[in-house]
Amino acid sequence: MQNMLSAQQAEQREFWRQLCPGMSIEGDAFAAPAAVGDPADLVPILNREGYIQVADALPEARIAPIRHAVSTLFQCGIPLPFAFVYDEMWLAFQSLSRFLSTALGEDYRALPDFWVWHVKPNEDSAGWGPHRDRVQPTIYDDNSPQTLTVWLPFTDATPLNGCMYVLPAHRDPRFIERRWDGEGNNVVYNPQDIRALPATAGSLLAWNQAVLHWGGRGSRLGAAPRISAAFEFQRGDCAPFNQPLLDPYRMPTFAERLGLIGKQALQYRHMYPLTDDVAAVATSLYQRFMPGVSLSI
């Protein structure tokens, strides 16, 4: 798909407002708490299984505009992380603060690591293959996390459009060995241990970053694309796993968002190789709006 975005367009608020009139940039909306029940009930599950799943965490009224915006970017050939120019994407993750502060501590921080997916329901489309988000140690002896990945589906995620799959922590020999890198670290030796995680739109999924997981392949039998986004977080009392750490309660400025989006395109190009024009836009945004941040590009 051809990129339809120039660096000059990317820096214009009016371009983004006209593209998705139902979305806001630096507006006055606030993050209404997500419906996650008692977060303390999720912690033992997270520590044993390595992940949690909560249905209906976000209402349809809050996810529908995001779903439409991501679809619009996809149709226009604009890299999907640009959905984070809009307040609504940040607010969706900010609404999870009760769960995140319980799992990671009150002073938790957001990592500068996020992504957005649009997986079409056909055999040519798939989520990211089997991987662990970090292979250095990120959990304590009781498997409580130092870092978490939070994944939000904005459409129903099914086995026919690439839902998530995990190898639960208590079924993974690596959690016994306490080593998550090296040869074979993404191999499942007993396929019956794999757990499919179909999820309705608005669900909350989160996993510690040692968990082996992946997105499935789409199918022409699927009814709709899988549209989703992920954001990473860490405990505030740990050394940064990436920089700059972000205050999860503060909405980044428009300029800061552009710098962060450029960073995502550059640091994840091993997953999504960049064309020369997309790389030029991402590099320009990164260099102009995130000065002084070290990134190998």
Rank of each mutant, 00 (worst) to 15 (best):
N3F: 12
N3E: 15
N3M: 14
N3V: 15
M4R: 15
M4Q: 14
M4E: 15
L5A: 08
L5W: 02
S6Q: 06
S6E: 03
S6Y: 03
S6M: 11
S6P: 08
A7Q: 05
A7V: 08
A7R: 05
A7F: 04
Q8F: 06
Q8V: 07
Q8L: 14
Q8E: 14
Q8T: 05
Q8P: 08
Q9E: 10
Q9L: 14
A10K: 05
A10G: 07
A10F: 04
E11R: 05
E11G: 03
E11I: 01
E11P: 06
E11S: 08
E11Y: 00
Q12V: 03
Q12D: 09
Q12K: 05
Q12W: 05
R13P: 11
R13N: 10
E14G: 03
F15D: 08
F15T: 01
F15A: 06
F15P: 07
F15K: 04
F15L: 14
W16G: 02
W16Q: 05
W16C: 06
W16R: 00
R17E: 09
R17Y: 01
R17G: 02
Q18S: 10
Q18C: 13
Q18F: 10
Q18A: 13
L19M: 15
L19C: 11
C20Y: 05
C20T: 09
C20V: 11
C20P: 13
P21A: 06
P21Q: 01
P21V: 04
G22H: 12
G22W: 11
M23H: 07
M23E: 12
M23N: 06
M23W: 05
M23C: 15
M23S: 09
S24A: 13
S24M: 14
S24I: 06
S24H: 05
S24N: 09
I25P: 01
I25K: 01
I25R: 00
I25S: 01
I25W: 00
E26Q: 13
G27N: 02
G27Q: 02
G27C: 12
D28M: 14
D28K: 12
A29L: 15
A29K: 11
F30C: 15
F30H: 06
F30L: 14
F30D: 12
F30Q: 11
F30M: 15
A31F: 04
A31I: 06
A31N: 05
A31C: 09
A32R: 01
A32M: 10
A32K: 01
A32V: 07
P33T: 00
P33F: 00
P33H: 01
P33W: 02
A34E: 03
A34P: 11
A34D: 03
A35T: 03
A35P: 03
A35N: 08
A35E: 08
A35S: 11
A35H: 05
A35F: 08
V36Q: 03
V36A: 06
V36R: 00
G37Q: 08
G37T: 02
G37R: 01
G37C: 13
D38H: 00
D38M: 13
D38A: 12
D38C: 13
D38K: 00
P39K: 00
P39M: 09
A40Y: 04
A40G: 11
A40V: 09
D41E: 14
D41C: 08
D41S: 08
D41N: 07
L42I: 07
L42R: 00
L42Q: 06
